[in-house]
């Protein structure tokens, strides 16, 4: 079987299009590249939606945590502590079994037990908590002079927030937020490794990589392929976030601009 045919059969395997059976023997490099790449669709799906949606909740959480009102502050603090203080792994398991038992009582939760929704929800809350903490830290370190200048210009309330506080907060938080986004994409590999089952062998990149590692007893091929895909993905994320960072920093002299520094985390 030529490589083109393999790609035609398996490129969309992870979303259920193409050949039904996974290759069972005589694994070629092409098959491994195609299937693991096909699994990346899921990683990108989870990461993209969780980061985009989580961004909004994170803003709310950061503002809530900085709020003087106890009724706003306490829930935000607890939400952040809950999701930052426990392993994502356990969160996945817990969420999965919680949805399982809720499914019994109400059919509304039916689709929550499948990864595309349930795991996305967990990832969404998780990244919102981590990002919320980053934004909160940035909000605390908005320079006092900026606020005084805003006062001097007569900006107050919502207008001051929208024009001065929020952009500065974003600017300060952006390098760490980039790291958080990268890290979240890495964390998406946990989805099918924890509670959520891969239905009809439609899994993510790590699922296929470990499938090949199991079948061939040779981890030295599929995992480097996986690493290769993730390095590519990371570079794309750094590129996209870098453009936003440039825009956020465009009013500053070159020397003062905050540069992104890549920091790897192990696990969340």
């Amino acid at each position: 079987m030529s490589c083109i045919a393999t790609i035609q059969d398996y490129a969309l395997r992870s979303i259920g299009i193409g050949e039904r059976l996974l290759p069972r023997s005589d694994f070629t490099l092409c098959q491994q590249f195609t299937l693991i790449g096909s699994g990346m669709i899921w990683n990108i799906y989870f990461g993209l939606f969780a980061v985009t949606l989580g961004f909004f909740l994170a803003n709310a959480l950061a503002l809530g945590k900085a709020s003087k009102n106890t009724w706003l502050r306490k829930p935000s603090e607890w939400f952040i502590f809950l999701f930052r203080g426990s392993p994502l792994f356990i969160q996945f398991f817990f969420a999965y079994f919680l949805f399982q038992s809720l499914k019994g009582s109400s059919p509304f939760f039916g689709s929550f037990t499948s990864a595309w929704l349930g795991a996305l929800l967990v990832l969404f809350c998780n990244t919102a908590a981590y990002t919320g903490e980053i934004f909160y830290g940035a909000l605390q370190s908005v320079p006092k002079g900026d606020m005084e200048a805003a006062d001097a210009y007569g900006l107050t309330g919502w207008r001051r927030f929208r024009r001065i506080t929020w952009p500065t907060m974003m600017r300060l938080a952006w390098p760490s937020y980039t790291n958080e986004a990268i890290f979240l994409f890495h964390a998406t590999t946990l989805v099918f490794f924890s509670g959520f089952p891969a239905w009809r062998q439609k899994g993510d990149a790590l699922y296929y990589a470990s499938y090949f590692a199991d079948k061939t007893f040779n981890p030295f091929v599929p995992y480097p392929i996986l690493a290769f895909y993730f390095i590519l993905l990371t570079l794309v994320i750094i590129g996209c976030f870098g453009m936003v960072n440039k825009r956020l920093n465009r009013h500053l002299p070159k020397m003062q601009q905050q540069k992104f520094k890549f920091r790897m985390n192990v696990i969340r």
Binding site: H186, A187, T189, L190, F193, L206, A209, S210, A213, P219, F220, Y223, L226, A227, F230, M264, N265, V266, I267
Partner: peptide
């Protein structure tokens, strides 16, 4: 090296 790939890979290696 990314997180859990390292754990999976390194132990076998």
């Amino acid at each position: 090296v990314p997180d859990i790939a390292f754990f999976l890979f390194f132990v076998i290696a």
